[in-house]
Each structure stands twice: as structure tokens, then as C-alpha cells.
Design a protein around this nucleic acid. Structure first.
Length: 320
DNA sequence: AACTCGTGCAACCGCAGGCTT
DNA sequence: GAAGCCTGCGGTTGCACGAGT
């Protein structure tokens, strides 16, 4: 064990590829094609495993590879697609000709690291344990969501507070799950926007060219009414619609009803971010009393208690 | 100049799923 | 249906390099 099945040959070289190795691989692939990758090393005269050859070719050597910095449009497209499909890098890469999943993944991860640092340096240090526990080297998608939600939780008034300065995306804002014309430009009122949108994401969407927008649209999953997968974005339109009905004083009851009626009860399974979102809304904005209690835990999916703090004990134990 | 640290990127690892036998 | 092999994918690691001290 310890080595991949394709790499258990004797004297398999690892590490960075030399120009000579690249040359051998290019020469072989361009003249013979790659066919079965496991046969490529022998036939090309390389002491690499087939998997390594494949990776080198796909990520670096193939002629249609596009290198260099991501353009603003590519960046926007990545952001948009990531909001739709999450960390499915190969899927995202399929919408960016010449870009590899590895490249996009690296770009995204380093980019998020920057955002996290920016957040942590600009926000005060009174973050709760949730954030501190989840900021880690991996699972950036999930963790970053928590960071944003945590910031919401620390705001006193969700309807008047300024949204985080540089939020990237969140499970609360796949706005293009709606009709683009309405959701993008018509329904993000001042009050609702603070709750449900991500400013960075919003800017990205607004800046998309029609071509890019079409690419995003083409990647959309089936309509929400028929799809409740684990994908976070599928949970959100009801919330956003209901938030629109909140009054200017920030009556959160609509949110709660929404969460109970459309979001939590219907989509309560396997979605930690949503639970945290709920948890933070409630904890951060002075809601209390019987009517605001989260749905009965018996309604929750079997995974809810292990995946998230919702319904949290602190919610019930504290006086909000 | 030497050292440390942070960052970006290439490559590896383990797993899942498809295909073949 | 089971086993083995292969490919593809996402997560993770390690290293080179530049910036800062």
C-alpha cells in the first residue's frame, strides 16, 4: 500500500518533470496519441507512471493549454460557476477553454486565502468558536461560508448593517437561480440585499458579459422545484423571495417563516451551511421566544446533528 | 548577504466510478 | 456478481521563488 496501483513499478521517477521528459512525452503523444495511459511510459521511454504522464500532459503539455493570468471575465465566470457547482473544478474548467481544473483549483484556493486574510485583518477578534474551528487549510468552500456567516452573526442589525466588504460567494446568494432579469437587477432591494447577497458576487454577476452569462446559464442545474440535491444553491430561492417581504425595520419573522416553511423543512438534510446560516441569523440578531425556535429537531435529517450545531444548544440556552 | 516567511504552482495521493473479463 | 484495471477527480503536499527583514 502507499503507492497507487499504476505506480508500483520499479524505479518510477517522481517529482518535477525535466525538459527531456517533457520532450519525450510530447513527441510520443503527438505521434501516437495517448490511448491507454498505463502504456505510455513504456512506449515513450519514461520512468514515470501512466498517471503522472496523464497529469503532466493534461495540466501542462497539451497544445491547447492556456497559460498566464486569469482574465477578469474568466475570474467572474469562475466565481459564478463555483457558486453554482461548488468545488467541481473539472466542471468549471470545462467552461473555460484551455484552463485546467488544477489551475482553477489552485487559483481559487490562493484567492480565497487572500480573502480570508483580508477578512481576518479587517474584522475584530471577537469571532466565535465556529469560525475559529473551521478556518483550516482545506475545505475552503465550506469554511469560507462560515466565515461570512459568522460576520453576519456579529452584526447588530441584519437589515441595516453593511455587508462584508469582500465576500466571495455564499450559500445565500446563488441569485441566478431565478429569472436573471429580476433577480440580478430588480429584486435586490437595500434591505434584502444586506441579508441575502454577497457584494462581490453581485458585482461579478453584474459585470458578466452576455456571453459569459450564457455560459453560466448553461451550467445551471434543473429548476429548484424539482431538485433538492446536496448542492447548497438549490436551497436558496425561497429564502430570497421571502426576505423580499421583510419590512424596513427588519422584521426577521419572514426569514424565519421562510426558513421553516421553505428552506429548513424541505431541505433540512445534509446541508451544514444552511444550518449555520440559520443559527447565526438567530443568534446574531436578537431573536428569541418560542415562535422563533428552529423546527423541531425530529424534522431534521439524520445527518443534521453531526454536521452542524443546529439546532444549537446555545440557541435555546441563551436569552436572545 | 543571509535568513525567514509567504505565496503560487506542479505534482502526488486516495478514492470513486466505469469498463472489461 | 466479483475482481481487477484504468481513468478522472478533488484534496493535499512539497518545493521553488520572490519579498521582506
Amino acid at each position: 500500500m502507499g503507492q497507487h496501483s499504476c505506480c508500483n513499478q520499479q524505479k518510477v521517477k517522481r517529482g518535477l518533470w525535466s525538459p527531456e521528459e517533457d520532450e519525450k512525452l510530447i513527441t510520443y503523444i503527438t505521434t501516437h496519441g495517448y490511448g491507454c495511459w498505463s502504456e505510455v511510459p513504456d512506449k515513450a521511454g519514461l520512468q514515470r507512471c501512466g498517471k503522472s504522464c496523464r497529469l503532466r500532459w493534461i495540466n501542462y503539455l497539451r497544445p491547447d493549454i492556456r497559460r498566464g493570468r486569469f482574465t477578469p471575465d474568466e475570474e467572474k465566470l469562475i466565481i459564478s460557476l463555483h457558486s453554482v457547482v461548488g468545488n467541481r473544478w473539472a466542471h468549471i474548467a470545462s467552461h473555460l477553454p484551455g484552463r485546467t481544473d488544477n489551475e482553477i483549483k489552485n487559483y481559487w484556493n490562493s484567492w480565497i486565502k487572500k480573502k480570508i486574510r483580508k477578512h481576518s485583518s479587517s474584522s475584530n477578534s471577537t469571532t466565535n468558536n465556529v469560525t475559529q474551528n473551521v478556518v483550516h487549510h482545506s475545505h475552503l468552500n465550506y469554511n469560507y461560508s462560515n466565515i461570512k456567516l459568522d460576520q453576519f452573526a456579529n452584526q447588530e442589525n441584519i437589515t441595516t448593517a453593511k455587508p462584508p466588504e469582500t465576500t466571495l460567494f455564499s450559500p445565500t446568494c446563488p441569485i441566478f437561480m431565478f429569472e436573471p432579469s429580476d433577480s440580478l437587477h430588480g429584486t435586490t432591494t437595500e434591505s434584502s440585499c444586506n441579508l441575502q447577497t454577497d457584494q462581490y458576487f453581485q458585482d461579478s454577476i453584474n459585470g458578466l458579459s452576455s456571453e459569459t452569462w450564457n455560459q453560466v446559464q448553461s451550467s445551471l442545474p434543473p429548476p429548484i422545484s424539482t431538485t433538492f440535491s446536496m448542492d447548497t444553491m438549490n436551497y436558496l430561492p425561497p429564502l430570497i423571495e421571502n426576505v423580499e417581504n421583510m419590512d424596513e425595520e427588519g422584521d426577521h419573522r419572514g426569514v424565519l417563516e421562510c426558513l421553516q416553511g421553505h428552506w429548513v423543512e424541505e431541505t433540512h438534510q445534509q446541508c451544514p451551511n444552511n444550518f449555520l446560516f440559520w443559527d447565526n441569523i438567530v443568534q446574531g440578531h436578537g431573536l428569541g421566544g418560542e415562535e422563533q425556535l428552529p423546527p423541531n429537531s425530529s424534522n431534521m435529517g439524520t445527518n443534521s446533528t453531526t454536521l452542524s450545531p443546529f439546532p444549537s444548544s446555545s440557541f435555546r440556552d441563551n436569552n436572545y
